[in-house]
Nucleic acid binder design. Structure first.
Lengths: 139, 139
DNA sequence: GGATATCCTATCACCCAACTATGATTTTTC
DNA sequence: GAAAAATCATAGTTGGGTGATAGGATATCC
């Protein structure tokens, strides 16, 4: 039940962009220095985020990345679904049955239940929420 | 954010034992046949479950496994924590800081929040709940 | 004693996540 | 216009963990 390092680093990178929202672009070299992640690796994380419409990159000198939407409109679930291709706990977490056993499988409802709990936990938070430290709805 | 196959198969195996609770032991060969999992693999799943005090194995002919506690007293979180050594989404999900960045890390509260959501989702269900099909608190 | 089952340890094989490397393209500065 | 700075794209490598098998030791029933 581990989150990939891709998801972890991608989130941290986006938080850096969020902290700079409205103040221009941030080059990956800055984020790399602050977070201790290689530029090359960051580039790979930005690709799916760009395709998901969460960030825009401006090329050339003085270029960099910036959020495409304000931090309070970007849900954590949104960015993690872009970074983590398989966010569900198992293959049997979806609404429609996936394996031939699903009819009589007593465990399937559990995977669905767990998956929903995760989605809910991630979608109730935005980047903005994390910026002002401490999860707002922390039990 | 995938659950290991170990956790998945282990849960299905325990559900078989739960279905037979109070009616004697179940040999792994039975579970193997019903769930399509090899006996040798099941053996490995039973080891941590036994150490966690969830099942007992009786050796010899007519032997097999049985639950050590009634199904309504075994929480899913309990068994998954036994099967999955690292159930937390990241290394930074615990209450005490793990990495040197944790002080200023804006992402850390997120991992804690997510971890708690998962634990809660798993601990609010018992094997018994799964036996009578359909998660009880499925929003 | 033979059959059946759990218990225990070792080992293999493979997949994939985590990077690194290389290069192309675009834009700004001087 | 050249050099530098940055994103964009893809290919390749490698280590570790997971899934699974193998073989045997131990215990129990008939």
């Amino acid at each position: 039940m581990r989150l990939s390092r891709k998801a972890e680093c991608g989130t941290r990178a986006l938080l850096q962009l969020a902290a700079n929202y409205g103040k221009g672009v941030v080059p990956l070299s800055d984020i790399a220095a602050r977070e201790g992640i290689s530029v090359k690796y960051l580039e790979q994380l930005m690709m799916p985020l760009r395709k998901a419409g969460l960030v825009t990159g401006t090329r050339g000198a003085l270029g960099g990345y910036s959020l495409k939407k304000p931090p309070w409109e970007i849900r954590i679930g949104e960015l993690l679904r872009a970074l983590e291709e398989r966010l569900e706990p198992t293959d049997c977490s979806g609404d429609l049955p996936s394996c031939e056993r699903s009819g009589r499988c007593k465990a399937r409802p559990l995977w669905v239940h767990l998956s929903r709990a995760v989605q809910r936990a991630l979608d109730e938070l935005t980047l903005q929420d994390l910026l002002r430290q401490g999860p707002p709805v922390s039990d």
